[in-house]
């Protein structure tokens, strides 16, 4: 297991790859983020359309529903920047999860994030699903009810709760939802196991780590929790992701 250092940013969306990724990666490195994760999302609702289309066209070959992880080549001048691959699964029922886990591309990701969109999916994430990060869609209010018991269950399993600051800069509604969710994490779980990531789609949204620590204070975190959100908890997420990956590989073979 390699060691990861520096400030962590676990949500650099794949939209940044098409828009001059080298520039964005250099900027992130200069600001102080030495470990980043490129985030690719699987949305169950979009997937269902393509599956039904596939049935209509009667395709014989089975396409892998999980996209293959983007291979980020070493960027000149940022040799020390570690780039990981993260997969976010947005789902409402657990059926899609079983299909995803069996996919060969699934194992290639370092970090798995769960984005439940229903109460059933939320229950499934808390009990059965081996995710590293628990995330949410800032465009809408959550479709599930958080409970203290379930929050601590996730904490015990080593899952970290993600709060993104990029969408909060862009849009006022998203900002309200993000702050509301952050405060909910504070109320139900005393802001334990929180990570703050960028969720950026362009380079104007990057902020330096000390600004993000200050933002953490506004999200209801304490001094130590705000610093951990981009430091120590980031390291814990990587550790959790690596051990689960090893376990999954061991189980399959």
């Amino acid at each position: 297991m390699e060691s990861v250092k520096g400030y962590f940013d676990y949500n650099v969306t794949d939209k940044c790859i098409s828009n001059n990724f080298e520039n964005i990666a250099k900027q992130l490195y200069d600001f102080g983020y030495h470990t980043i994760a490129i985030n690719q999302t699987i949305d169950e609702s979009l997937l269902e359309e393509s599956i039904s289309e596939g049935k209509k066209k009667k395709k014989i070959e089975r396409q892998d529903i999980v996209p293959s992880p983007i291979d980020a080549k070493i960027i000149k001048g940022c040799d020390k920047l570690k780039i990981l691959n993260r997969l976010t699964i947005s789902f409402t029922t657990q059926d899609i999860i079983n299909r995803i886990i069996k996919s060969p591309n699934y194992r290639k990701y370092h970090i798995i994030a769960a984005q439940p969109e229903s109460q059933q999916a939320f229950q499934f994430t808390c009990t059965n699903f081996e995710a590293d990060i628990f995330t949410f869609n800032p465009s809408t209010k959550p479709n599930y009810k958080m409970q203290r018991k379930l929050y601590y269950l996730l904490v015990e399993r080593g899952v970290h709760f993600e709060i993104m600051y990029g969408p909060a800069i862009e849009d006022s509604t998203k900002r309200k939802n993000i702050i509301a969710t952050a405060h909910m994490y504070h109320s139900f779980g005393k802001s334990r196991n929180i990570i703050i990531s960028s969720g950026i789609t362009n380079s104007f949204l990057i902020r330096n780590p000390y600004d993000v620590i200050n933002l953490g204070l506004l999200f209801g975190l304490s001094d130590g929790q705000a610093k951990d959100a981009i430091q120590n908890n980031g390291r814990n997420v990587y550790m959790h992701g690596s051990t689960v990956l090893e376990f999954v590989c061991w189980k399959l073979y």
Partner: peptide, 15 residues
Amino acid sequence: GSLTLAGYYQGKPCA
């Protein structure tokens, strides 16, 4: 915190 969350100046992105 307000400086961090400031995203637009006259409709154009800023930081």
